[in-house]
Design a protein around this nucleic acid. Structure first.
Lengths: 227, 227
DNA sequence: TTCACGGTCTCTGTATACACACGCGCATTC
DNA sequence: GAATGCGCGTGTGTATACAGAGACCGTGAA
């Protein structure tokens, strides 16, 4: 395969600023409510104000930051309601995506993924590195879904959802019990897709998302009362 | 009610450039494939390159224009596949939206809309002005749905879909037969929502979108063979 | 006649300088 | 003591100048 790593990525300064700020927001380095001042951030990231403005504009389009009326921009909050809203949209999109994947002719990619999800529980015993690898596996699952639905609009909406999801995934990161259950749920979805059972794929996805949301809300409520 | 029409809208140059370009793309003044050069467009719109860059960046985020590797930006094409893809996403979103609207407690807004959709066929006899008013009614229907679902993520996705939909709605504009049928379909959806029948609302939406897509594709195929 | 190479030109990416608007703080007045 | 008005500082919005990269065109050689 032709790997285009060298010349195809001039990596503009605005791209770098966007990527860095986005990762920092997603990783929680820049918590919700953080005010982003143009001069301050441009100095910190070593770029001029112009590319930084471009980066912030893209973050606004992503919904990760919002412009405050007069003064500066700030990282958006992730309230409990917004999490419920996000999962509402996620349900609509992923159920449809699972349905389409199950109806697709070529489902060999999912067969290969299945084997690796079977081995996932062992992965989750391997500490932080294993958890990291597990999330990489989830990413590959998502990528396989994207390739199967083959719909730029639907995939685009899914990407947006996953961006916001990355912010709240942090809270469930240190919960191996939940992750093991999630692996089993993914396995069921994969089996349904491989069998071409669109209805089961959609319903298994629904169940998975229901349990995922319940877990997130439980963790959130626990940390809420703690702090 | 406090109307904030005077001071709340400084209307930045970048906003104006974005709005003008967006409207021109949606109205077909700038057809698909049109190349947007920064200096040329900034001169035409009477703004500098900086706000124009910002406007183009927003259009890229909307998916209305795409950056061509080296040279400039161009208005994206609306192929038959992309229209099918758009309707695939639209189905997932609007079925869910209709379901949520039917489950909502306060559905009085839909009752008022119903009366006006009953009168819609008469509207469609009134020439271009009537058709314009009919589309305004559709916008109010969409707005009522948005208010009912009360979910910024879902509404955001719907807004994106409607943006692209506006581009292809032009082809069906001069088809009063289809518009009359569409009004009847909307009426059925409204009745289902008012009755709190979520399943019927979703299924009626599905039917409406199926017929809408079929109409668009038929018109497109007819114009394709003509030209 | 065709292909390849080089020059030039144009357009985007970036940096910086300037203007304006909002807001805060202080002083003055009622 | 409180409220209002004025002035200043800070931060975004805009314009423009500069640099680099890519493409197109022309010319020369095979």
């Amino acid at each position: 395969m032709y790997t285009e790593t060298v010349k195809s990525a001039p990596e503009r300064a605005s791209d770098r600023a966007y990527r860095v700020l986005r990762d920092e927001i997603l990783d929680g380095v820049l918590p919700a409510g953080t005010v982003l001042l143009e001069v301050e951030q441009s100095a910190r990231l070593g770029v001029s104000r112009t590319p930084l403005r471009s980066a912030v504009a893209r973050l606004v389009a992503d919904g990760l930051v919002a412009g405050r009326s007069g003064r500066g921009f700030s990282v958006t909050e992730m309230s409990v309601e917004s999490i419920n809203d996000l999962y509402e949209l996620r349900e609509a999109l992923e159920e449809r995506a699972a349905t389409l994947a199950a109806r697709r002719d070529d489902r060999t990619a999912f067969g290969m993924l299945r084997d690796r999800f079977v081995a996932a529980p062992a992965l989750l015993e391997a500490g932080e590195a294993g958890i990291h690898e597990y999330y990489a596996l989830i990413d590959e699952f998502d990528a396989a879904i994207d390739a199967a639905v083959d719909n730029s609009f639907l995939v685009g909406a899914l990407v947006t959802v996953r961006t916001h999801l990355a912010r709240i995934r942090r809270v469930a990161r240190g919960n191996p019990v939940r992750l093991r259950a999630a692996a089993a749920e993914h396995l069921l979805i994969l089996d349904a897709i491989i069998d071409g059972d669109a209805a089961l794929a959609a319903h298994a996805t629904h169940v998975h998302l229901h349990l995922s949301l319940a877990s997130v809300l439980a963790v959130l409520e626990a940390t809420e009362t703690t702090s």
